[in-house]
């Protein structure tokens, strides 16, 4: 079996591992590191359940190779237990019923956080488009959209919003 050594940073910790080149980053995190927040809903790039951050940017974990993450920083939902914006999102998702079965939720949260921080989205229609690569089969999106809007408002209204880092 072909294997490659890799070193990368996962959720703030450096890890070294020997992986098969064919292993996806999502599979490595799940099977190699037992980080199971990254879900697999399609394994061909469409559903967004496997969304994670690579060097701070959301990518598909299912079609990113673990070997290609050599030397990079990877963050999964597990890294955000204390993150203030993620906690606002959590509260809003619960309040607005933004999840039912919870399978799409980790991917949704990471995408939502990126949408709020990057400030690319102005209208409800744009928010829908920005979220169009994350599929939820349960909620019909209504609660998710409301939750993200509410969290965004709370985030922008927080004290020191202009200066505080994410």
């Amino acid at each position: 079996m072909i294997r490659r050594e890799i070193a990368l940073e996962v959720n703030g910790r450096s890890v070294h591992a020997s992986v098969e080149p064919r292993q996806s980053l999502a599979d490595y995190l799940r099977d190699g590191l037992d980080l199971t927040a990254t879900h697999l809903g399609c394994e061909h790039g469409v559903c967004g359940a496997c969304t994670l951050l690579l060097d701070g940017e959301p990518v598909r974990g299912c079609i990113t190779l673990a070997v290609a993450a050599e030397g990079r920083r990877v963050d999964t939902l597990e890294a955000f237990d204390e993150d203030p914006l993620m906690n606002l999102l959590r509260q809003a998702f619960s309040e607005h019923h933004g999840l039912q079965c919870g399978f799409c939720t980790p991917g949704m949260l990471l995408m939502a956080r990126d949408i709020i921080l990057s400030d690319r989205v102005a209208s409800d229609a744009e928010l829908r488009v920005a979220l169009s690569g994350n599929i939820c089969r349960c909620t019909g999106y209504a609660g998710i959209l409301r939750a993200i809007s509410a969290a965004r408002e709370a985030w922008q209204a927080r004290p020191h919003a202009a200066t505080g880092p994410a």
Partner: peptide, 26 residues
Amino acid sequence: YIAGGQTLGPMLNLRLSQPDRLIDLG
């Protein structure tokens, strides 16, 4: 060759493409 892997990735996972070696241009 593989660049972003956003087309090749799904094709590899679906075993529609089965190369012996990938050369990463990334």
